[in-house]
Design a protein around this nucleic acid. Sequence first.
DNA 1: ACTTTAGCCTGTCGGC
DNA 2: TGCCGACAGGCTAAAG
Length: 270
Amino acid sequence: MPELPEVETSRRGIEPWIVDRTIVDVVVRDRRLRWPVARGTESRLRGQRIDSVARRAKYLLINTASGTALMHLGMTGSVFIVERGTPAGVHDHIDVELDSGKALRFRDPRRFGSFFFSQRPYEHPLLARLGPEPLGEAFDGEYLWTASRGRRVSVKQFIMNAQVVVGVGNIYASESLFQAGINPKRAAGRIARRRYDALAGSIRDVLARAIEAGGTTLRDFYGGDGEPGYFKQELEVYDREDEHCRRCDTLITAIVQGQRTTYYCKRCQT
DNA sequence: ACTTTAGCCTGTCGGC
DNA sequence: TGCCGACAGGCTAAAG
């Protein structure tokens, strides 16, 4: 489900409900996530006041004075606010209960998500080697071009690599490459500097527009306010196999790269 | 150092 | 209608 725009939409949705609230308890109903939820996570959070909620890559960081609770939504995870005491569904694995009478609920049917506590989150092995934020200062065409020299992987797989740049998942990789006019099969190391300028700009633009639209809801994504994401309506190629390219009318092609489906226009993307 | 693959899970959908 | 395989928005670890 969630790529960067969906995680950012979730962050904005929960922020007003949890910042400056105190955690009165944490209830973990199922510890079997991507990595088992460590024993003691609950006690480290209990009694802490939430100072802020941030996002790094696709991680949500709930910051307190004593450390940070990190959540990753994996493929099917979501977070939302409920009244404390709201009966939990089968996939509602964690509740962070607040002194306001509300709770932050973590739901994840496939359990590819994760939840852990860290005093130095940015030094945690899972975060330490992440690439730059695509909407940040350090990300531009020069960076991508330099990082791609000598790389033989396809450009699609290259921009989905979180050590290169974070937050670009399967939907937005296809969309960014379409907007930049680049064939997703092209080897990353054989793309000119100027084309990487275009690609970096497209990644920024696509992600920013998707955040504005509240993310992309293909089936079951809802932001913190319960609204679906409306970026689906703006998708140019993703999930549009055999439909007409809006720019040139050619039928959109679907291929598989690295076990993920890629969509592109053979005529617009070279 | 890079690239590729297997695998973690459940739910849904299309074809028979 | 039911069964079965294919597929799904992510990511790591291990193997090559």
